[in-house]
């Protein structure tokens, strides 16, 4: 038991690692603040275009979604980080992570939002248009608010996944939460900083997981 406490819950080591780990936590929050809105905006575009009537628009979008959903996000990130320099494009780590996340999360948000839009009856669009709203206004003011509400649990669940996924940025040495904790671990030869980081992830994400469970049970009932 002592050896477990010594190696995993060592308060002295946690205290000395705290500034590093907190800086990393700040970077994780910044990353989330960038990649979630960017991915969501991309997803909205994907959803609108893949719901278009023209096949010329719809099919390339479906191909885009399936293509990028076939790659594990870490693979996209590594390829952008390690592969693009061979084509003369050398992105800084933060930009590489943002690009990889955009390519991945816009597909997932897009699929969810498309399902949401499809769940709204045709009558809503017809009624909105008949009041004189343009197609765009009808979409933004009538269809989308209802669509988002219908798929809210899926949107939250996907956002949770995106936040967890920011941990892969550590692989390209972006000093976010996991990277900072791993640094502190390798300096102190003690796993307590990782436990500290896990604690911060839990602090941020556990409430979201609880919320999701409640939403899902309400849907099932």
């Amino acid at each position: 038991m002592d050896i477990l406490v010594e190696n995993f819950f060592n308060l002295a080591i946690m205290q000395s690692a705290l500034p590093t780990v907190l800086t990393g936590f700040g970077m994780t929050l910044l990353l989330v603040a960038v990649v979630v809105p960017v991915g969501f905006a991309g997803g909205l575009l994907v959803a609108l275009v893949s719901g278009a009537r023209s096949r010329l628009l719809r099919w390339p979008m479906i191909a885009y979604v399936d293509f990028f959903r076939a790659f594990p996000p870490l693979v996209l990130l590594i390829f952008i980080h390690a592969g693009l320099p061979f084509a003369g494009i050398d992105l800084p780590a933060f930009a590489a992570v943002t690009l990889a996340f955009f390519l991945n999360t816009s597909c997932y948000y897009g699929e969810i939002l498309r399902a949401g839009i499809e769940s709204i009856g045709k009558g809503q669009m017809e009624a909105a248009r008949s009041t004189g709203l343009t197609k765009l206004l009808a979409m933004t003011n009538v269809i989308l608010p209802q669509a988002v509400r219908n798929v809210l649990p899926d949107l939250i669940s996907n956002t949770l996944e995106v936040v967890k996924l920011t941990s892969i940025a550590s692989v390209v040495a972006l000093p976010e939460l996991l990277y900072s904790a791993e640094m502190a671990r390798s300096i102190s030869y003690n796993a307590s900083p990782i436990i500290l980081a896990a604690g911060l992830y839990l602090l941020l994400l556990w409430p979201v997981v609880r919320l999701l469970s409640r939403l899902e049970h309400r849907l099932a009932a």
Partner: peptide, 23 residues
């Protein structure tokens, strides 16, 4: 179920691979 859904898998992998050997 809550813990495993809230923690990033990479954190767990790092923990199991680099930290468990010390115990």
């Amino acid at each position: 179920a809550d813990l495993l859904r809230a923690l990033p898998p990479l954190v767990l992998i790092i923990l199991f691979y680099f930290a468990l050997p010390s115990v």
